[in-house]
Design a protein around this nucleic acid. Structure first.
Length: 510
RNA sequence: GGUCCGUUCGUCUAGGGGUUAGGACGCAUCCCUUUCACGGAUGAAACACGGGUUCGAUUCCCGUAUCGACUACCA
């Protein structure tokens, strides 16, 4: 089999795309690029009741933002369209009928109440797993138990029905998962899953197999939650006679909660204050809001790198990978088997790494955007200077402004603990002298001159500069910690600095 | 309950019949820095348990525990 590799990401438009889905999309993308194959996106919207307006667009936007856009999709169709299952609706019935004719599927007329009654009966009889299967179907209303005439009559009368797969009673179903190896399940534990719903829509199981076949999918890379139904899918390929081109399966380990156990959910996000969605999202029905990595200040490079390492590693000690480098290094064999707890600290660390790697001018852009919102004017050059000295201590672009505020806004209050410890007569003396020197200084004001003036102010009064440095910082910035003070002074400018010192001298008492 | 899947530092993981079990995040200490941060160095920290197989098992096999997924006319 030397077919061109074709993989797909097949989300349901039922809300914001979960970060786990983003990872699945990423792995599909990486595999496609690595093998010079195609990455397709198919919208699985067969459940009309769960359709959410805007969800599909959200998926598109999120993948576009991260730079992992599909080669074929509803908005960029290839030769295998349509790419929305709802638009493929007319295609599925014939395949279901094919199975019925071959004796691998049958009509079932049971109502929801009858199904409930059956399950209750089974539960009461202490049957281990109440399900519609090779045993119980003999007691239900379907084309296997009803006389042929009646089946025809029911169909003709327009009575609602579903089509169920007829799972064989005794058969070992095997599949070779690329990540987990051979998985074997006995057909007796499988149930007769519904293939066609009474509304004429296929279920996931049918649509998925038909579409993957029709779209020439060679590898199914999806979440581990699908592993239990994979044997059913294998059976379907067999019954359709598509075994020769059945895709290979790779079931990805799940993303877990950072604490305790269970799947990562939006609740965890809210509880810990971190996002689990790529971008902000407001549910159009409930109005419920969810925050996104993008809006929280995560850089796409960082998110990609972080996500790639959630369940995969290159086999060596490298940690930093661009998308291109990931493509180069990626292989399904190196995907782990066990669930992965979500550690937001690692994501932050990645963000810091990528933030620091950015140029001052690019970072200045973020800062200027924030400042514009605040209504504070600033020149690009000054913004770049601030970005330069702030980027070593920022996690997110917004920190440039948040943590560097004092360079643009004079302090109105002073950190009390620092003041009580460091504000003394010597500091007042030096600051007075420094202020005086600043007011008469007419040369170029830069970190060097700022420092020599300060040194002179201290020396002339016989005071060790080190002793009053903290107080000087406090006077100029209001706080006791920050970037190199002389660089800060240079950015603040001498007049503004003198003014701030004057204010501090007034406000603080020894 | 049943089926399936997994189990190496707190977390992400490398490794694999004989290793001082390696790296990263986080944490701690020290250095650098007239502060903080960055950076550098150091440190604490792991093979779930019980049986086999073997000269030897963390690594292979079996069992137990435990985690998780699935168990819908949802995907």
């Amino acid at each position: 089999m030397n077919r061109e590799v074709r993989v797909r990401f097949a989300p349901s438009p039922t809300g914001a795309l979960h970060i786990g889905g983003v990872r699945t999309a990423l792995y599909n993308y990486l595999f496609a690029r690595k093998t010079n194959g195609k990455f397709l996106l198919r919208i699985e919207d067969t459940d009309q009741t769960r359709f959410v307006q805007g969800a599909e667009n959200y998926i598109k936007e999120a993948l576009d933002w991260l730079g992992i856009s599909p080669d074929e999709s509803p908005w960029n169709p290839g030769d295998c369209g349509p790419y929305r299952q709802s638009e493929r609706k007319p295609m599925y019935m014939q395949y279901a009928m094919d199975l019925v004719e071959k004796g691998h599927a049958y009509y079932a007329f049971d109502t929801a109440e009858e199904l409930d009654a059956m399950r209750e009966r089974l539960t009461a009889a202490r049957v281990v797993s109440p399900q519609y299967n090779s045993i119980t179907r003999t007691q239900m209303k379907n084309s296997l138990t009803l006389p042929e005439d009646e089946v025809k009559a029911r169909l003709a009368s327009g009575e609602p029905y579903v089509i169920r797969i007829k799972i064989p009673r005794k058969e070992e179903v095997r599949l070779n998962d690329l990540i987990r190896g051979w998985v074997m399940v006995h057909s007796s534990t499988l149930d007769d899953k519904v293939l066609m719903k009474s509304d004429g829509m296929p279920t996931y199981h049918l649509a998925n197999i038909v579409d993957d076949h029709l779209m020439g999918i060679t590898h199914v890379i999806r979440g581990e939650e699908w592993l239990p139904s994979a044997p059913l899918h294998v059976l379907l390929y067999k019954y359709f006679g598509w075994e020769e081109t059945m895709p290979e399966f790779a079931h990805l380990p799940l993303l877990l909660k950072p604490d305790g156990n269970g799947k990562l959910s939006k609740r965890d996000a809210d509880k810990h204050g971190f996002p689990v969605f790529p971008m902000d999202w407001t549910d159009p029905n409930t109005g419920e809001k969810a925050m996104g990595f993008k809006e929280q200040g995560y850089l796409k490079e960082a998110l990609i790198n972080f996500l790639a390492f959630l369940g995969w590693n290159p086999g060596d000690h490298r940690e930093m990978f661009t998308l291109e480098e990931l493509v180069e290094a990626f292989s399904i064999e190196r995907i782990g088997k066990s669930g992965t707890k979500f550690d937001i600290n690692k994501a932050k660390w990645y963000n810091e790494q990528y933030l620091r790697a950015k140029s001052d001018s690019e970072l200045a852009g973020y800062l200027m955007a924030d400042l514009e919102l605040e209504g504070i004017p600033i020149e690009a050059d000054k913004a770049a200077q601030i970005a330069h000295i702030m980027k070593e201590r920022a996690t997110f672009p917004a920190d440039l402004w948040k943590e560097g505020k004092f360079m643009l806004i004079a302090p109105s209050a002073f950190d009390e603990t620092v003041a009580s410890k460091k504000w003394n007569q010597d500091a007042v003396t030096v600051l007075n002298a420094y202020k005086e020197k600043l007011s008469v200084f007419s040369g170029g004001f830069n970190p060097e001159t700022a420092k020599s003036l300060l040194e002179a102010a201290a020396e002339e009064n016989g005071i060790k500069l080190g002793k009053v440095m903290q107080a000087v910082r406090l006077a100029a910035t209001g706080v006791g910690a920050g970037p190199d003070l002389m660089a800060v002074f240079s950015i603040i400018g001498k007049d503004e600095l003198a003014q701030r010192i004057g204010f501090a001298l007034e406000k603080l008492s020894v």
